[in-house]
Simulated assay, not measured.
Amino acid sequence: MADDEAMIRAGVRAILASDPDIEVVAEAADGREAVEAVRKHRPDMALLDIRMPKMDGLSAAAEIRRIAPEVGVIILTTFGEDEYIARALGDGASGFLLKSGDPRELIAGIHAVAAGAAFLSPQVAQRVIAELARGSGGGKLSRAATARTKIDKLTDREREVLALVGAGCSNAEIAKRLHVVEGTVKAYVSAILTRLEVRNRVQAAIIAYEAGLVTDDES
């Protein structure tokens, strides 16, 4: 985990220590240290603040995704500006959490990302959905048409999996719903990301929403 404030790191560590399934293998006070820690320890995930010296958390997230794409990246920050959210998700982060949120969200987010799902704090999720719904006329229709063109590349089963990804389901939950093994779901998700030319499940979920795959019952 990386944060330039020692007191914040101590607080986050205390929260994570309450879950026996989570182990902090390294701490960093800036983005460069975070990248080097990931290079050295190859953790399951990296928990990053945004505003840090030497290299900010968003740049660190992009570099981590480049050198270790198997590592999940979660942004934990005070700043929930749309610009930061868009850049984080665009650079491949699988989670975006606010420090003002419930500590249980942090634990839930880590478990969700570890299980192969994406996780946004409720406040961030609302803003993402609002952004998807914003606009009218050609712009909104154009995004929907583009999304539908992208999902035309998918098989019927892949579209079914994508709809469940868009609804926020983990690989285990999708496997249970579709009555297949989790390894099969992982293979489907990997193929979907490649076909849609996106970096992670959050970006895939956005396409699912824009294409109209996610129903009210699923979400």
Results as ranks from 00 to 15, higher is better:
residue 3 D to R: 05
residue 4 D to F: 08
residue 5 E to M: 13
residue 5 E to Q: 12
residue 7 M to S: 10
residue 10 A to M: 10
residue 12 V to H: 02
residue 16 L to M: 12
residue 17 A to Q: 13
residue 18 S to A: 15
residue 21 D to N: 07
residue 22 I to H: 08
residue 25 V to N: 09
residue 26 A to V: 04
residue 28 A to G: 07
residue 28 A to P: 03
residue 29 A to T: 02
residue 29 A to V: 05
residue 31 G to V: 07
residue 32 R to C: 01
residue 32 R to L: 13
residue 34 A to R: 01
residue 35 V to Y: 01
residue 36 E to V: 00
residue 43 P to W: 06
residue 49 D to W: 07
residue 49 D to F: 09
residue 50 I to R: 00
residue 53 P to G: 14
residue 54 K to H: 10
residue 54 K to D: 13
residue 60 A to P: 02
residue 61 A to F: 06
residue 64 I to L: 06
residue 69 P to Q: 11
residue 70 E to M: 03
residue 74 I to V: 11
residue 74 I to Y: 07
residue 76 L to E: 02
residue 84 Y to E: 02
residue 84 Y to N: 11
residue 87 R to A: 15
residue 90 G to R: 03
residue 91 D to R: 01
residue 92 G to Q: 08
residue 95 G to V: 06
residue 100 S to F: 14
residue 100 S to A: 14
residue 102 D to F: 06
residue 104 R to M: 13
residue 109 G to P: 04
residue 112 A to K: 09
residue 113 V to H: 05
residue 114 A to C: 08
residue 116 G to C: 09
residue 116 G to D: 10
residue 117 A to T: 01
residue 117 A to Q: 09
residue 119 F to Y: 15
residue 120 L to C: 05
residue 125 A to G: 10
residue 128 V to A: 11
residue 128 V to T: 02
residue 131 E to R: 10
residue 132 L to G: 12
residue 134 R to A: 15
residue 135 G to F: 10
residue 137 G to N: 12
residue 139 G to N: 10
residue 145 A to K: 02
residue 146 T to L: 13
residue 146 T to R: 06
residue 147 A to P: 02
residue 148 R to K: 14
residue 149 T to F: 09
residue 149 T to V: 10
residue 151 I to E: 06
residue 155 T to K: 09
residue 157 R to S: 11
residue 157 R to V: 12
residue 161 V to D: 12
residue 162 L to K: 01
residue 165 V to A: 09
residue 167 A to E: 01
residue 172 A to I: 04
residue 174 I to S: 11
residue 176 K to M: 08
residue 177 R to Q: 14
residue 178 L to Y: 01
residue 178 L to A: 04
residue 180 V to P: 06
residue 181 V to F: 00
residue 182 E to P: 00
residue 182 E to W: 00
residue 185 V to E: 15
residue 186 K to N: 15
residue 195 R to F: 07
residue 196 L to P: 06
residue 198 V to T: 02
residue 202 V to C: 11
residue 205 A to M: 08
residue 207 I to C: 12
residue 212 G to H: 04
residue 217 D to F: 15
residue 218 E to A: 15
residue 218 E to Y: 09
